[in-house]
C-alpha cells in the first residue's frame, strides 16, 4: 500500500507514541491501531446513518424502534466495550513492573525543572546523572520516581507510557528498549514556569557496553553536574 507510506512517515518522530522502540510502547501502539480502526468504522456508520436519515427518499419509517435502540444503544456498545475492557486490562497488566530475575533498578527524582537519575553499576555503586538516564538494552528497567517539589511526569513516548512523580509518593515505572540509541522524553505534568524546558533523555546501551558506559560516567562526574535548584 504505497498510499499509506506518507501516513506512516508522518507517524514517526523522536517522541512518537506510534514509533515504539520497546515492548511497552509497542503494546500500546498496537492497541491504538486496533481502536483507531474500530472507532473509524463506528464513526462512519453513525454519521452515515445520520446522513441517510435526512435524505428525502429512503426507508426506515417502519423501523422497530425498540429493537433498534436495544441493538444499537445497548447490545452493540456492550459487546464492543466488554472486549475492549478485557483487552486493555490484559495489556495494562503486562506493562506493570512485575518482579523478575533480570530487572535492573534505577531512580529518578524530579524537581523544577530537571531530573536527577541514579543508576547502579555491577558493584551496586550509585551513579548520578542529570537529565539523562542510562539503561541496558533488552532488559526490563524499573525506574523509581519521586519528586522534590511539585508534581512532574516521566514520559519517554517511544519506550513506555507516562507515570507521575509526586512529592510524598514513590511510583515504579517499567521501561525497556529494544535497540541502543537515544530516546527523547519530556515532563508531561505542568510543573510551573519552565515546564516546557524540562526535557530529558534515555540512552540505551547494548548490554556489553553498559558497564563501560557507567564506568565512564563514574570517571567524569562533572560531565553531568547536578545544578543548583533554580530560584
Amino acid at each position: 500500500m504505497p498510499a499509506a507510506l506518507p501516513l506512516l512517515a508522518a507517524c514517526s518522530g523522536p517522541q512518537s507514541v506510534l514509533d515504539p522502540a520497546g515492548p511497552g510502547a509497542a503494546a500500546v501502539a498496537t492497541l491504538w491501531w486496533v481502536m483507531f480502526a474500530g472507532a473509524s468504522l463506528i464513526l462512519l456508520g453513525v454519521c452515515g446513518l445520520a446522513l441517510y436519515a435526512v435524505l428525502p427518499r429512503r426507508r426506515g419509517r417502519g423501523l422497530d424502534a425498540g429493537r433498534f435502540l436495544a441493538g444499537g444503544g445497548l447490545a452493540f456498545p456492550l459487546a464492543v466495550l466488554a472486549v475492549l475492557l478485557v483487552v486493555s486490562l490484559r495489556a495494562g497488566e503486562a506493562l506493570l513492573p512485575h518482579p523478575g530475575p533480570r530487572v535492573v533498578r534505577a531512580e529518578g527524582e524530579a524537581r523544577q525543572w530537571f531530573w536527577t537519575f541514579t543508576q547502579y553499576d555491577a558493584a551496586g555503586r550509585a551513579i548520578r546523572t542529570t537529565d539523562e538516564l542510562h539503561i541496558p538494552v533488552g532488559v526490563p528497567v524499573d525506574l523509581r520516581l519521586t519528586a522534590a517539589d511539585v508534581i512532574h511526569s516521566f514520559w519517554v513516548p517511544r519506550l513506555a507510557g507516562k507515570l507521575d512523580a509526586i512529592p510524598g509518593h514513590e511510583n515504579l515505572l517499567r521501561l525497556q528498549a529494544d535497540a541502543p540509541g537515544l530516546y527523547e522524553g519530556q515532563c508531561a505534568e505542568f510543573c510551573g514556569l519552565e515546564h516546557t524546558r524540562m526535557r530529558f533523555r534515555v540512552r540505551a546501551h547494548a548490554p556489553e557496553d553498559y558497564a563501560a558506559a557507567l564506568a565512564g560516567l563514574r570517571l567524569t562526574p562533572t560531565a553531568n553536574p547536578v545544578p543548583e535548584r533554580s530560584p
Binding site: 481502536m35 472507532a39 495494562g92 511526569s153 507510557g161 507516562k162 508531561a188 505534568e189
Partner: peptide, 17 residues
C-alpha cells in the same frame, strides 16, 4: 469514541496530558 480510547488504561498512560 476517543473518550472510550482514553478510558483504556494503557493507552491513557501514553496520551494523558
Amino acid at each position: 469514541l476517543t473518550g472510550v480510547m482514553v478510558a483504556a488504561v494503557p493507552f491513557d498512560w501514553q496520551v494523558h496530558d
